[in-house]
Design a protein around this nucleic acid. Structure first.
Lengths: 242, 242
DNA sequence: CGTGAACTTGAGTCTCCTCAAGAACTGTGG
DNA sequence: CCACAGTTCTTGAGGAGACTCAAGTTCACG
């Protein structure tokens, strides 16, 4: 059960929905804004829906979970931020936070006071460009998941999710072929609009096909190309038909 | 078949997923940026995926349809912009457009050269705030539809869609109780992640219940409260159970 | 160890999709 | 003005995928 030396996951073959562009440059921001550090223990909230909105956050270490709830009780997880990811932007202009962010791990968070960050962006075109691009990237990310939920089957969604997690891990220098999921099956299901049993079944199927190896939250990608194929819409369009 | 004088649609009872905040203030922008006017005939593209990105757009009149396509051929409509709506923001930082925008009607469009708009935002804190808020609102809108697609049944989604259209019409001074859909059943289905037959069936069901009256694309909301109820997750939680 | 949460698996059901046909509308050319 | 073709919409019948309900297993934690 050691790390496999074969079948490494080439990062260019891992194109999940998330665009893997560099995140907000905290160092550049720190030159203009007084950034605060915050530590969270697993299970603690970074912010909750309805709370006053007075800061954005960048994850420095650890893993979180963001979710929204409606007044009629429907709930959905909107993402699993990790190092480099920006949180809280959806609250801009809304006065209060409109989502929850909870730590799945112990986390180190960088706090960017709002609206101080905006003032800093006024002073620096680079910062402004970085910030605006980060917002636009968030929109693209959402659209891509919207498309995934709207067009993919359960197993394809789970495969896409695994590829996304793998790619993000790889982008941070971790292994994309072997990682530990920080969230439960229920969380994955909520994110992918599936029931937790369905997530389990999809993982079991992928395991049965020899594409991945799953043991609780420990996941190994054994065959990245086939995982890619499993995430695709139509069955493996290897070459575009005439 | 005249406009019904009873059962008017009160705008505060119409809360679709879209936040109905005021859109980008074009007049304020025009003071800082040279804005261009563009006219589109029905069926013409405002921009297409892959095209160079050099402007954002605000709808001044008419109705459009935006969509994304993946390399493996999956497609989804992401929205139906109308007067006051901002288009093209998802391309910021991506170099080229990542979606298609096509006119469903003859349209008048205001073109905001990019990155000139960003420069203008540097000069004016108000503009910057307006612009950033518009992006954040877009994120909230996407999240709300994501939640709707993930948690609602077919009929609930269609009801939600009708309420959204009604509310947006009402916000522009049109009737929220009687309107003409500019898009086909296929389009609605693509947006809501449903097949066109399912959309038709949902509309038929709502009609059979006396909640709406549909004749092709002509829609009358006969009972807004019940349409609201039809869009809700759990069956009409009139008062929260203890 | 014991308790509870998380995960897995199975069996039956239901929603929505697929496939198919027909009706209604639109626009075009005779 | 009418016939025609094409598109859009509607409705039905049958099937597939995901959900619901239920039970059992494994694991983490006190």
């Amino acid at each position: 059960m050691s790390l496999p030396t074969t079948a490494p996951v080439a990062s260019d073959t891992l194109r999940g929905p998330r665009a893997l562009a560099p995140a907000l440059d905290v160092a550049a921001l720190a030159a203009h804004v007084p950034v605060l550090k915050r530590k969270l223990r697993a299970g603690q909230y970074l912010y909750r829906s309805g709370q006053a909105f007075n800061a954005l956050y960048v994850v420095h270490a650890g893993f979180l979970r963001t979710s929204i709830v409606t007044d009629d009780g429907r709930e959905q997880i909107t993402g699993f931020p990790m190092r480099g990811d920006l949180l809280g932007v959806e609250a801009i202009g809304a006065g209060a936070h409109v989502s929850d962010a909870i730590a799945l791990d112990d986390c180190d968070i960088v706090e960017l006071p709002y609206p101080a960050v905006m003032t800093a962006c006024l002073a620096s075109p680079e910062l402004q460009g970085m910030f605006t691009a980060a917002l636009a990237r968030e929109i693209r990310r959402d659209r891509e998941w919207l498309l995934a939920l709207g067009t993919l089957t359960a197993e394809q969604r789970v495969a896409t999710f695994l590829l996304d997690v793998a790619a993000r891990h790889a982008a941070l220098g971790f292994s994309g072929a072997h990682f530990v999921l920080r969230m439960s099956r229920v969380d994955i299901g909520s994110f992918l609009a599936l029931k937790h049993e369905t997530v389990t079944r999809a993982l079991s199927n992928l395991t049965a096909q020899g594409i991945i190896a799953v043991e609780r939250r420990d996941v190994r990608v054994l065959d990245a190309p086939r995982l890619q194929a499993s995430s695709r819409g139509a069955d493996a369009p290897l070459h575009r038909a005439a």
